[in-house]
Design a protein around this nucleic acid. Structure first.
Lengths: 132, 132
DNA sequence: GACAAAAGATACTAATATGGTATCATTAAC
DNA sequence: GTTAATGATACCATATTAGTATCTTTTGTC
């Protein structure tokens, strides 16, 4: 059961670092600080820019800064960028075994667990994470 | 975010079916009813027997029946057979970004979410699932 | 006892998701 | 114009999950 993938983790670390530095940060700096493979880090930062989390500056002295206040960048946003929609998978059980999907215990429980987890995750933003 | 894999799902369906029929069930019957590939179903049933969930009978008229009361077979038991330990992954953030792991917001939240999810899952047994 | 119908054991292959690399094009500061 | 940066994109590697194949062992039935 994996809630957070490496992609997301690297992205979080990068975003936290950028948040802390409050200036334009190049991939090279991130690589030096975070120890993530350079091309992979680049890919992640590009994605973050495409998705409007960061803003990029080309050319000498270029790099990335946050596009939004740290308060407004949510963990769930970054998770869904790298991991797709956050819903847990539903009940696989087919009709003949689980004739009434609405009443299916497993399905209901899984949905409940999903809701609980999302409620927690939704509360987390970069402001909180960057503080340490 | 996947809570339950296909393995587990097939296993659950098989166990529920066996529970409902209350007699020895062959893989062929399970395959016919559940539409799961035969060799895969076999592998799953073998595993369930090795792990003490089902009991197997060789030879003509053989097959599988449950070894325990449906009340005593927990979803979490079957999940861990096919998916390994159920704990969610911890916080990836490294020291330099997240200097105090004990205070790390993300880590704490993820652990809490894990606990909540497990609490729910632990309540589910085959008795409840087999009812539909 | 021979045969057939079942599971046991085990090794292999395929598909998918994730993690990671490589390369060329574009932009902007100096 | 050169250099230092990102943009775009295509590719490769690894791990996990899903699924197959095959041979052995057991047991009921004739």
């Amino acid at each position: 059961m994996k809630l957070i993938t490496r992609n997301t983790d690297y992205a979080l670390r990068a975003v936290c670092y950028i948040a802390q530095q409050k200036k334009i940060i190049s991939v090279d700096e991130l690589v030096a600080v975070l120890g993530v493979p350079r091309p992979f880090m680049r890919k992640i930062l590009q994605k973050l820019s495409q998705e409007g989390i960061t803003e990029s500056y080309k050319g000498q002295g270029g790099g990335f800064k946050l596009k939004l206040a740290t308060k407004k960048i949510y963990l769930t946003a970054i998770m869904s960028i790298f991991q797709g929609p956050l819903s847990l998978n539903g009940c696989f059980l087919k009709k003949d075994i689980c004739p009434n999907r609405r009443k299916c215990v497993l399905r209901k429980k899984l949905l409940f667990i999903e809701k609980q987890a999302l409620n927690q995750l939704k509360q987390i933003n970069i402001e909180a994470l960057a503080k340490g």
